[in-house]
Design a protein around this nucleic acid. Sequence first.
DNA 1: ATGAAAGCGCTAACAT
DNA 2: ATGTTAGCGCTTTCAT
Lengths: 365, 365
Amino acid sequence: MLSRSAWRSGARLRKRRPETSTVGPPARSRPTLEAVATVAGVSRATVSRVINGDHRVRADAAASVRAAIDQLGYVPNQAARSLVTRRTDAVAVVVAEPQERVFIDPFFGTIFRGVGKALAEHGLQFVLLLLEGTTDRDSVVRYLAGGHVDGALIFSLKSDDALPAAVTGLDLPAVFSGRPDWPRHQAGDDVLFVNADNRGGGATAARHLQSLGRSKIATITGPMDQAASVDRLLGFRDELPHLADSLIVEADFSRHGAARAMHLLLERHPDLDAVFVASDLMAAAALDVLREQGRRVPDDVAVVGFDGIAAVAERTSPPLTTIHQDIEKMGRLMVDLLTQAITGPGEPRPESITIPTRLVRRLSA
Amino acid sequence: MLSRSAWRSGARLRKRRPETSTVGPPARSRPTLEAVATVAGVSRATVSRVINGDHRVRADAAASVRAAIDQLGYVPNQAARSLVTRRTDAVAVVVAEPQERVFIDPFFGTIFRGVGKALAEHGLQFVLLLLEGTTDRDSVVRYLAGGHVDGALIFSLKSDDALPAAVTGLDLPAVFSGRPDWPRHQAGDDVLFVNADNRGGGATAARHLQSLGRSKIATITGPMDQAASVDRLLGFRDELPHLADSLIVEADFSRHGAARAMHLLLERHPDLDAVFVASDLMAAAALDVLREQGRRVPDDVAVVGFDGIAAVAERTSPPLTTIHQDIEKMGRLMVDLLTQAITGPGEPRPESITIPTRLVRRLSA
DNA sequence: ATGAAAGCGCTAACAT
DNA sequence: ATGTTAGCGCTTTCAT
């Protein structure tokens, strides 16, 4: 829900330019369509046609319009345009995660590359909205509702986040990263998402470790308030139904948290011979701890990660065996879904997508 | 220069909603001011006043307006508003760097935290624009020129980037990160920037290493097409005027590049006893190489980094002695400058800022 | 304190 | 092929 006073967007910053300019360059206000039309000796409509690629314009008229545009340095006013077209050609990418994670976990860098490329292909501007505190949610919802963008891609992993519900109530095309599991979500809700087969991936990890003959298998999970973490653990347990609770330690997708979890596991079970870690970044940290504690990988302890980001998995020592999901592709798919949703009713409604995961074997397991 | 056809922003995505709704929820178009006014039984002007915090409205009128707003779920259309106010209450943060760097080097995460907080305090929306290839420059310039934002913060470290010149030609308030050194820049240009005293920091590093009694001092620099890298080296040489070229290796601010540079230095000068590395991230990589090559730090080789990001410098082994710049503060200062510039002519013109750097001693030197 | 009315700069019928 | 015209949703004089 939008807090009422939130509209007053704080200090009004720009003072109106005094008509009688004081000092400095006389605030040449940007040229308008009208100005271009006058210079080119045609009507506004013709200029508009040239700008928007309407071919029903005589070549010489078009040429003089273009000349006028260049001469004046004219750039269309987007506010005016989108007021009538109801389109902005921009898409918001909303990330409701602490900045620490966004700028450190390569997951985001990778998926944004996919998103960015796909958006560019569609001629859409990539607008990234970062949320710092809880306060920001209002301001972002206002931004989205205010018509700045044609649609939104939402990255909000915590189940109890208020943002998803706020966004779905907005009548703005939106696609989520990961399966929805926030409180007010109903199975029937027509929420679009792109998900990886986290459960299947967790199961694959467990089977692989078992096939290696490991018997004391532990796992370091992500935060249990995120669907992806829950699903990975669920799949893992599908194959290891008798897994003791003491072999499961929850961490927070950070290096630091994973290191702590690894220490804890080693303390509890000095004889463990395998660990499934819910992200590559955390697996890298676990490897460091294992080495430091004198365990050889994979001889003493086999390690399987999750993500399959080459930049991370190939550079650990030993290189990391991991459950791979095509993250960049997930980004592209989110954009595909969104553009279909924007195209709107009348077209067949696009469907959410779950992409497969697969084991990529390197040396750690 | 804006390529002419660039305005045609690609596929027109949204088909106009058929007035005669087909299936699904009838595309309830967003309520307008007019609708709120009707429900509240007042005029548009009064509703507008309530929304914008104008106090010259009777309490009961204001109350019924607010009730109508809640009932209808009304949110102002920003395009319409900014068409008349000529303000958007949004600021673009433009990053002309490869995404790899943005999402890995903690410099960006840190400075964005400062920027984000300061913008929020001013009631301004943070809009991050990421540039992938060169193609994107047009699209970003169009976005900035199109009136989507009130100002821009530009992070573009490469000297030969076309973006800064394009932006300064735009009559849009802008503040740059780092001193300007792009080709068309003239000393007289009134470009606003926030810079760290990179040259002073480089000199401090050199003096510190000398004070430790080191005599074979090398350096791993950042890319020489970036002012910050050049300045750090300049300062370093100020104190070490006879530094041999073979003791200088250029890297690219990446871990990988720094590791390669460190190997190269060790090969050339197995007897080196100190290294100044132009970023903490690179210094961390250099430490790894040194350890791996059997050098003790700081006993055999002293290492000084640059940035002073605690999250990096405190977690290396040994913890990193580094030249500290208050990155988060730089972010805040950029916003301060920008808001002053947006306030516009009439006010005293703000001045660019260079913040000091200082040595923070830990164990590596 | 409130309403009427005039635009902001643009696109999209509708004429011609 | 081109011009005329009517808005898009809002803020802001100017009256009252």
